[in-house]
Computed example of a mutant assay.
Amino acid sequence: MKRLVRVLTIGAVLAVAALVVPDSAVQSTEIELVKVKRAESVDVSPDVVWILAVGSDARPGEDMTHTRGDALQLVGMNTRTGAATAIGIPRDSWVPIPGHRSNKINASLYFGGPQLLGETVGNLVGIQPDYVFVTRFEFFEAMIHDIGGIDVVNPIAFADDNLKPKGFKKGHLHLGGYDALVFSRIRHDLIRGDFDRSANQQRVLRGIQSAVRAKADRPGFIERGVYSVIQHMHTDLSPAELYRLGQAMAQVDPGKITNCVVQGSIGDIGGASVVLPFVDQARRYGDDARKDATIKKC
């Protein structure tokens, strides 16, 4: 009963915010949540919701939906079992982009916005996302601060002369907003570069989910978070769809989360370093997770 009341409250907050927050009260747009338009039906389980989460490195004044994405994670959530999975895509993966020949996969956001990026990632993995979620790094940092930081397990020490000179130690870490952001972005000091960075992004996502779940029963915690997101978000979703996504996230069981990163080889195209993704592996992850949001083995 307690959980039902909480879910209904979240739904009420979403509905009220969508109706009563006037444009003049909405702060700067830091989040874009769009529904992916599909030309034809896709064989995906109705119990699984797929969201492509994108971190945009847009500078102030730039349109974050038409820059190059810095973080790409295809996240599936099973509303029936509570399982969830994240498939990490290195941002420099060299892939065909519909209507634009081949390029780094994150260039598809620049060329055609969230819709084209969703289609391009979907073509690689074999699962077209239902939604694309784009956020600026500044809002991500503020969000981590608002939930009291997150905990991650770091497998190896690493640093960055510009972003984090003293670096991150190996082991259990508590990260505030800035540290969570740079933990997700650093790649040059990592053994496997883009691949390890994508894995670190998944550790941060898991940390966020754990932190929110741990505080979810505190009076007003979820409601304040939802309202804050609404104030900074532009979306074409209805309150009912936002409510459905809120339900899916609330039902994720931390013990049923799996993460994999699409691997590849390093190449050079036109003088630029790129990742040549293992397409067969990407499709295997997609085939494995399509029906139940679970990957049995990376």
Rank of each mutant, 00 (worst) to 15 (best):
V274W: 15
C298Y: 06
V20D: 06
D217V: 01
V274Y: 15
H66S: 09
T294D: 10
R101G: 10
I266G: 15
G193Y: 12
G61H: 11
I31P: 01
R206F: 04
L242F: 08
M249W: 11
K256Y: 02
R197S: 12
F183D: 09
R59D: 02
A199R: 15
K166P: 02
G55K: 01
R203L: 13
A86V: 09
I144P: 03
F158E: 07
I266H: 03
I257M: 15
T85S: 06
D23S: 10
M77D: 08
E30K: 09
D288Y: 11
W50Y: 13
L33E: 00
T135K: 07
T81N: 04
I89Y: 10
L237W: 09
Q201K: 00
G122L: 05
L205S: 12
M77H: 02
A58C: 01
Y178H: 11
S238P: 10
G267F: 00
Y178Q: 09
D217H: 08
T258E: 03
R68E: 13
R3N: 14
C298R: 07
Y285I: 08
G193K: 05
D292K: 05
G267R: 12
Q263F: 01
D253W: 04
A17P: 05
E141R: 12
V75I: 09
N259C: 13
I144V: 11
F137L: 10
L181W: 10
V121R: 02
